[in-house]
Simulated scan of single mutants.
Amino acid sequence: MAAVSLVLRGVAAVGLAVDAYIHLKLAHQYSSVTSSTVSEGTLFRIEAAAATIAALLVVFWRHVAGDAFAWLTAAAGLAAILLYRYADPGTLGPLPDMYEPTWFADKVWALIGQAAAIAALTPLLARRRRPRSGNPASTG
């Protein structure tokens, strides 16, 4: 089971690293898309920072809170890619209008990285939530 956990953590970390790299690489291109509060470039930098922290937590901390943060970071990024690819919600509160109805290589790689992280972290989180056999709290 330890080997499976290491592989899953490696997949999650690589997926998050790809996500971070792509968002940081593209941030300057989206800095001109702004609301009155924040630019899309700034949001890309925030996503890159969150994904970097998440990858480090998955590899070095190995705690359910870090895994949950990493899962939520990847899920939020994936949701944003899909929402703004397939829907045009316009400006949402402080967020700029980020609608972009096209696919291109970097967007696909970010999506793959996020999806891989979610797929790898889900069993790690699910395993921790199940009571262990022989645990007095699980009988009853």
Rank of each mutant, 00 (worst) to 15 (best):
D97R: 15
A105I: 05
Y84N: 15
Y99S: 04
R130T: 05
F104C: 06
L57E: 14
T102R: 14
A75W: 12
E47G: 01
L95P: 02
K107F: 05
A55L: 00
Q114I: 00
A105T: 14
P96W: 06
A110I: 02
L72I: 12
Y99A: 08
A120E: 05
M98Y: 03
W103A: 02
Q114A: 13
A87E: 07
T52V: 06
A87M: 12
I118F: 04
K107G: 08
I81Q: 00
M98F: 04
A76H: 03
A75M: 14
A115Y: 01
D97L: 05
A54R: 01
A76Y: 04
Q114G: 06
T91R: 14
A76E: 07
W71N: 02
L78Q: 13
W109C: 01
A48V: 01
F104H: 15
A105Y: 12
G93V: 04
G93W: 07
D97Y: 05
A50V: 06
T91M: 11
A75G: 14
R128I: 01
Y99I: 03
G66V: 10
P123E: 08
T91K: 15
D106I: 00
R127T: 05
T73G: 09
L92Y: 10
E47H: 04
T73M: 00
P96V: 10
R127G: 10
V108Q: 07
D97I: 10
I112T: 08
V64A: 13
E47L: 02
D88S: 11
F69D: 11
L125C: 13
P89W: 04
A87R: 12
E100K: 09
L125W: 13
L78H: 06
L72Y: 05
W109R: 12
I112F: 12
W109Y: 14
R85Y: 02
A117W: 10
Q114M: 09
K107R: 15
A70K: 04
A119N: 08
L83V: 15
F69T: 05
L57C: 11
A115M: 06
Y86D: 03
P89F: 04
L83C: 11
L121F: 10
A50I: 00
A79V: 13
A79D: 06
A116R: 00
A126S: 13
L83Y: 05
A54W: 02
G113V: 00
L72H: 02
W71R: 04
L82W: 09
V59S: 12
T52Y: 03
A49W: 00
G93R: 04
T102L: 13
G90V: 12
Y86I: 04
A48M: 02
D88W: 05
A54L: 05
L82E: 09
L125M: 13
A80E: 07
L121S: 09
D88A: 12
P94H: 05
P123W: 10
P123I: 10
G66M: 07
A51L: 07
A49C: 08
A87T: 09
T122Y: 08
A75F: 14
G113R: 02
R62N: 12
L78A: 15
A116N: 00
L82P: 00
W71D: 03
H63R: 15
K107C: 03
G66F: 05
A79L: 13
V108F: 11
R127I: 02
R127Q: 12
A119L: 14
Y84R: 07
V108H: 03
